[in-house]
Design a protein around this nucleic acid. Structure first.
Lengths: 127, 127
DNA sequence: TTGATATATATCGGTTGCAGATATATACGA
DNA sequence: TCGTATATATCTGCAACCGATATATATCAA
């Protein structure tokens, strides 16, 4: 028995759509995003570290998100560099436009897939 | 300038859904399927030979399709083996069940993606 | 008749993208 | 103190796919 069919995997484009959608609700950071994607999808979508961090870096390079380091101080903290850090990602104006494009692209995608599912009834072809 | 955003790519699961959907309308063969996918999707989806033939072979091995060779005879044809051939694919009962599963999985997929797009409004979270 | 294009199936080779593992470091509860 | 959770990041290998290539025939126009 192989694993049962639940949902198709995320393409890179769909992953970007999901992450930009989350960031539209407010800034977040890698670990939280990863957990949120799993929780909101009822574990259907999973974005692991090896997928997430390179993608976030790419979004940053493209100017779709702006980043900000938060120092999570331990009890005592000198001016050292070793404390735990949290990298916040905030949707930029460019990112919002990209999100809108991804949403529209997804709607076209869904529409075409549905036309295949509907089949000949929808195309006028003879059955 | 990179290519404009049109639709996300097809995952293997979505490609299978599209091809099984086409075969539900009646038997077809590789080249015709490739052309049909492009035509019906207004060129948004493209399934080239290197993607299509391995996939069709896989579907055949899984018993989702049944195959049948058609000899396309030239004007003269002895009992030779060199004539052009056409390999027909017909959806099996098992393939029909698989298609139904893929359709349901796609609907779950769409539903989850839409919930991300809808965002906080749909989740009860504070904006 | 010759050449270009379409039909038809199939494989190969390089690139991309990701899953799983590993690495590092801290916080917290049992 | 030991395991789990938080938090970011890279590495290694594998699988999938795009583009090209291969082979062979049919068709149509010049």
């Amino acid at each position: 028995m192989s694993k049962p069919i639940t949902t198709p995997q995320l393409t890179p484009d769909h992953t970007e759509l999901v992450i930009l959608s989350l960031l539209r609700e407010g800034p977040s950071y890698g670990y939280a995003i990863s957990k949120l994607v799993a929780a909101r999808s009822e574990e259907a979508f999973k974005v692991g570290p090896s997928q997430l961090y390179p993608l976030l870096t790419k979004l940053e390079k493209q100017g779709l998100v702006e980043t900000d380091w938060e120092e999570i101080k331990a009890k005592s903290a000198g001016p050292d560099d070793n404390g735990r850090k949290r990298k916040w990602y905030k949707l930029s104006a460019k990112g919002q436009r990209r999100l809108q494009q991804r949403i529209e692209a997804h709607q076209r995608f869904t529409s075409i897939i549905n036309s295949f599912i509907a089949g000949s009834e929808a195309t006028g072809a003879v059955a």
